[in-house]
């Protein structure tokens, strides 16, 4: 099973290639939308990349509780565990 840090590392990697260069430094506790400037389309793009990376389906229901990369890593870990 993937550890939280492994999942988080993958999220940060995907954020790094998705976000435009010259933006704020990517940190695990920054708000994905308010601090990192992601819009809803970019969030969906990132989720699809994560689904492919971990071979999981991410239910949309988990997203309202996700503000940061750390939150997302926690949710993904639960999904990975359940699948």
């Amino acid at each position: 099973m993937k550890e939280h840090d492994d999942v988080l590392q993958k999220i940060l990697e995907i954020l790094a290639v998705t976000l435009p260069e010259g933006g704020p430094e990517i940190k695990a506790d920054l708000d994905l939308i308010d601090d990192l400037g992601l819009d809803s389309m970019k969030v969906l793009e990132i989720l699809e990349s994560l689904e492919d990376s971990f071979d999981i389906s991410i239910p949309m229901n988990v997203m309202p509780g996700v503000r940061t990369a750390n939150d997302l890593a926690r949710e993904l870990q639960k999904i990975i565990k359940s699948e």
């Binding site: 969906l44 699809e48 071979d55 999981i56 389906s57 991410i58 239910p59 949309m60 229901n61 699948e83």
Partner: peptide, 21 residues
């Protein structure tokens, strides 16, 4: 209900998700 998107007009992606379920 649990809500899962599949890639637009992509039956292969849909099947992957059906397999997981």
């Amino acid at each position: 209900a649990e809500v899962i998107r599949f890639r637009h007009n992509n039956p292969a992606d849909l099947e992957k998700r059906l397999q997981r379920l």
